[in-house]
Nucleic acid binder design. Structure first.
Lengths: 334, 334
DNA sequence: CTGTTAGCGCTTTCAT
DNA sequence: ATGAAAGCGCTAACAG
């Protein structure tokens, strides 16, 4: 039924070792022989069996990528960076979606390891002890991308989430705002939730602005929750003159809530966020937002992984990539 | 270095066959023996080698999914449908991104086949003869999802793209519009481009409305191209009173172009599109759009694939799932 | 219920 | 430049 290397060998009148050499581009084959073999391969429609190859060579030339949420544009962008570099170094990548569930993440990590990937890229989610445990049992290198573990025991590539939101809030402060609301993500989420919240507090503190509990609302990263949170702020007696949202979507929700209340952005209330996703330019006014280098995070982490897989030395264990605030139209002077 | 089934066998004082049985949940093992084996596994930190297993059993319990563009929300949704069903039937799925490039699609299909996946799901893109050729050489079943080949030789699950856009345009006509512009995708794209364009023409024809070349602009599915196209319409002497866009993003671009020109949606110009992506509710006015059951397309195609992999008979070769027009606020009576 | 024994399709020494 | 042969780690008859 299936054509094996042995069939090709017979067809070409050579040994299977020679066929293997041809398939693997080993130079020690007479051009004529090579030609014969290629013809036989063509005639028989031979397709190498990567599973057998992986078993024999103990290498699969594939790296596993666990992506926490396939429908999140940011992660998709990271994945693109990973892929481009992987292709460059002749690795296949297999993407496994973990659907934002921790147990699925663990399961997927193990599946990937069982599949004998040559390396593992863990994207996004929170890194718990259970994760660390799973990584420890791995005999192949692991790189965290767009996330990091608390103790930095595992190589990682990420941005400084706290600094990113600090910079966002600082821009508001620099525009004269002192009553600044925050629409946060869940504080249980270390990167997007807690770090951004903490950056917000830090920025206030740096400017000597007292923290006001009423100025913080927790959302779920989505548009609707941005609307809800903003409505709350709007109803406040002493409402904020500027709002910082942890994601673009929530920021857009906030903008619409403001507009629905008959107020204007940024004239009445300024809005800023972190993400700089494509939708940031798809609102009126266009959204000022902190850009994170998602593609680069993917690219750098894949490059790091190739070094690790090659047992090359790496200059660092933890890479922090710079972010950038993209000024558009949603922030104005107080 | 690595722990094998043989090590476990020795540790537990049984044969490797028994260990294999335990690992594979074969009932023919005395509970006591099973326990011994599990303990040995635990002690040694044994992890089954899926590659060796795949070679021996000629099954990998994984299906390959080629996704044309990982940053496209629609496909992400299809993937979710695929995954949920795959999990249900105990298949792992590995996602390979083809980056909207045909040659990469072909390459990825071959890689997946070399990796001995038990089945293949091809999502999205155009199906050319070259694809068909690659599928023919496959010894495992293939299902097309969210696309179909011209001759329906390959099992597929899709919606009726032409009918979807026909229904959208019909809604406009039913609201009294007769001057209807279309912002199309590239006409080279059979599903999203040509089919939607054709549906538009068909709807006009059904209503006895003459086709006007000036009322069709080709965009690239993106927001900016929606703006461009709409600006063109706005400059027309006899401009359309309604616009049908092939994607939500272009529709939103159109809405903003209309608003920037000092006109109102839907009072002055109605807008409708196909996609019903999350951003459809993230504009003012909210966008009326035709919903496609992306999740279901994924789920149904995966289910179909499981049947095919099991050599079960299937009632159909081509499944066409129903779409639904979601009425929001961007369409008004002429 | 358990063990023995062939392979699965390929890579990789080691000879020649 | 080529071939022979020994595995890679596991499953799947087949025996018992």
């Amino acid at each position: 039924m299936t054509v094996t290397i042995y069939d090709v060998a017979r067809e070409a009148g050579v040994s299977m070792a020679t066929v293997s050499r041809v398939v693997n581009n080993n130079p020690n084959v007479k051009p004529q022989t090579r030609k014969k073999v290629f013809e036989a391969i063509e005639r028989l429609g031979y397709r190498p069996n990567a599973v057998a190859r992986g078993l024999a060579s103990k290498k699969t030339t594939t790296v596993g990528v666990v992506i926490p949420d396939i429908s999140n544009m940011n992660f998709a962008e990271v994945a693109r960076g990973i892929e481009d570099i992987a292709t460059m170094y002749h690795y296949n990548i297999i993407l496994c979606n973990a659907d934002k569930k921790k147990d699925k993440e663990i399961r997927v990590i193990n599946t990937l390891l069982e599949k004998q990937v040559d390396g593992l890229l863990f994207m996004g989610g929170t890194v718990t002890d259970e994760h660390i445990q799973a990584f420890r049992t791995s005999s192949v290198p692991v790189v965290l991308c767009a996330t990091a573990d608390g103790n930095n025991t595992i190589p990682s590539v990420d941005i400084d989430h706290e600094k990113a939101s600090l910079d966002a809030v600082k821009l508001l402060i620099d525009h004269g705002h002192r009553k600044i609301g925050m629409i946060s993500g869940t504080l249980q989420d270390p990167a997007l939730g807690y770090a951004r919240y903490h950056g917000y507090k830090q920025a206030l503190e740096n400017a000597g602005i007292p923290f006001n509990e009423n100025y913080v609302r927790v959302g779920n990263y989505r548009y609707e929750s941005g609307i809800e949170a903003m409505k709350f702020f709007l109803d406040l007696e002493d409402r904020p003159t500027a709002v910082f949202a942890a994601t673009d979507e929530m920021a857009i929700g906030a903008i619409h809530a403001i507009q629905d209340a008959g107020l204007k952005v940024p004239e009445d209330i300024s809005v800023i966020s972190v993400d700089n996703s494509r939708i940031a330019s798809m609102v009126r006014p266009q959204l000022t937002s902190v850009a994170q280098p998602m593609y680069d995070i993917g690219a750098v982490s894949m490059r790091l992984l190739t070094k690790l897989m090659n047992k090359e030395s790496t200059d660092q264990n933890k890479y922090v990539l710079p972010h950038d605030v993209i000024k558009r139209q949603s922030v104005a002077q107080k």
